[in-house]
Each structure stands twice: as structure tokens, then as C-alpha cells.
Amino acid sequence: MPRPVDNTVVSELRERIQRLEGASGRGRQVLPFGVTEIDRRLPGGGLVLGSLHEVAGGGNGAIDGAAAALFCAGIAARSKGKVLWCVTRPDLFAPALAQVGLSPSRVIYVEAGDEKALLSCMEEGLRHGGLGAVVGELARLSMTASRRLQLAAESSGTLGIAIRRWRRQAEASDFGQPTASVTRWRVSVLPSVPLPVPGVGRARWLVELIRCRAGESADFEVEAPDAKGRIALPSELAHGSPEAQARRRSAAG
């Protein structure tokens, strides 16, 4: 009969790993999603501040990045302070960010000439230490570049988010390459909430936690952020139903 796992030993090991990975061994703060099913999958109960996180869109969203951007905007909306948002393509729709709680007055927009300049802007923003979050949209993220961003985030305690966007669907395979990011997410669009009257209901997403350092992979069907940046699990959702599984397979494809 297998021996039960000693949770005390597991906790101690996680603390030792965090001390080795952290900039100075200090305890790291987290930003919870406020959804128990998600937060319990993340070490510490939320997204670790002072770290780099990666988000990409699934399916056609790998090109437009709309759902991924709104997912990140909801996270940034719940941070404290200004948000630096770096892009190379001038297609960011500010009113949509405002709908998920990220007011235009909080966002500093930077349009970089290329991804090399964008990475430099992100690194400087992360090292600054006076921002709530630094977000950058880019196609490629090497181990070296991601490590520099991770170290910069650790030095200031600022939340860093890399939104991966590609110009061609075939390029999305780059998302499988290893990086120094603490978590890696993929957000795919699902059919919106049905309404009893004509109209479009609240958007739904399949959010996949593909990688989590010192944690486990998982996927969640959620409703898009509200006006305060908070996502939610649909109250009537039956995760084990065939309909839910079919929606997930369709979105992931």
C-alpha cells in the first residue's frame, strides 16, 4: 500500500525552490484570480508578482490575439499602478480594455519599431519598479530574452506578461519552445452565453494553463472579465458533460 504524501515536506520543498529561484529569497506576493478552481492550481494561490507570464490565443486567436489581450487586460486591471503596454502593431483597441476594467488613464502605450526594441522597452519597464504591470505583444521569445525579462521582474517585483502573437498560423508552433516564464496560458474563444432575447451574451473562453512552475497543468471554461477585471466560472456549467467537452475540443483545435 503506497504511503500518503507528507504535505509538510512538499510545502518545505516548494519554499526551498522559491528561495533558489527568487532574487533574494524573500517571499513573493501573488495576484489571485479570485476563482478557487484556478487559484488552487497556482503555487501561492495566484499569479506570482515579480515574474514573467506568457499568454497566447488558441485557434484563430493565435493571429488576432483578441481574447489573449483581454485576458491579460483583466489581470493588469487588478494590479496596482500604471500599466506599460508595448506593441509593434497599432491595432490595440483601448475601449475593449476599458470594458474589462483597464482604464485608458492607467495605460502607457509604447509602439516599438521591432521586437528587439519592444523587448528593451519591456525590460526597462520591469526594472523601473514603479509600474503595476508590463505587457508586451511579440511573436518570438527566446530563452535568453525571457530570462532577462524574468530577472528584471524579480528585481522590482513587477508583474510581466508576454502576449504571443504570430502573423501566420504555422508560426504558432514556436509557443512550444522552452522559456523562463513562470506560467504559460492559452486562451481560446467559446460560444457566448445564450440569452433569452436576441443579442450577444457574455463571452466565454477556454483558458488552458499549459505550464506552471512548481504546479500542474489544467484547463478551465470561464466567462470573460467583468468591468473590474474579474473572470468567473459559468454557474450552470457542467464540466463533465459531453457538450462541454465538445466545446473544449473545438476551441483547442
Rank of each mutant, 00 (worst) to 15 (best):
M1C: 06
M1N: 10
T8P: 01
V9Y: 11
V9K: 11
V10C: 06
V10S: 13
R14N: 13
E15P: 01
E15K: 12
R16M: 09
I17S: 15
R19C: 03
R19G: 13
G22P: 02
R26K: 14
G27P: 03
R28E: 15
Q29K: 13
L31K: 04
T36W: 12
D39V: 00
R40K: 14
R41D: 13
P43T: 08
L49S: 03
S51V: 01
E54R: 03
G58D: 07
G58P: 01
G61N: 03
G61E: 15
G61C: 04
G61S: 08
G65T: 05
G65Y: 05
A68G: 00
L70Y: 09
C72A: 15
A73V: 00
I75S: 03
I75P: 00
A76N: 05
K82G: 12
K82W: 12
V83N: 06
W85D: 02
P90F: 10
D91E: 14
F93W: 12
P95R: 06
P95S: 06
L97H: 04
A98I: 00
A98H: 10
G101T: 01
P104M: 07
P104C: 05
R106S: 09
E111T: 01
G113K: 07
D114F: 04
E115C: 00
K116L: 14
A117N: 11
A117R: 07
L119Q: 09
L119I: 10
S120K: 09
C121Q: 10
M122G: 01
E124H: 11
G129Y: 07
E137T: 03
R147Y: 10
R148G: 03
L149R: 05
Q150S: 11
A153P: 00
S155K: 03
S155N: 04
T158G: 04
T158P: 01
T158E: 11
G160F: 07
I163F: 09
R164L: 13
R165S: 04
W166S: 08
A170L: 11
A172N: 09
A172K: 09
A172V: 10
S173L: 09
G176Q: 10
G176V: 00
P178S: 10
T179W: 11
S181W: 09
V182H: 14
R184N: 05
V187T: 06
S192T: 07
S192A: 15
V193Y: 11
P194Q: 13
P196M: 11
V197P: 00
V200Y: 08
G201R: 06
R202C: 07
A203L: 05
L206F: 08
L206I: 01
I210W: 12
R211F: 14
R211Q: 15
R211T: 08
C212W: 08
G215T: 02
E216L: 12
E216R: 12
S217D: 12
A218W: 08
E221N: 08
E223A: 06
A224P: 07
K228I: 02
G229C: 02
R230N: 14
A232W: 08
L237I: 02
S241N: 10
P242R: 12
E243C: 01
A244E: 11
A244V: 01
Q245A: 13
A246D: 14
R249W: 12
S250M: 12
A251L: 01
A252S: 13
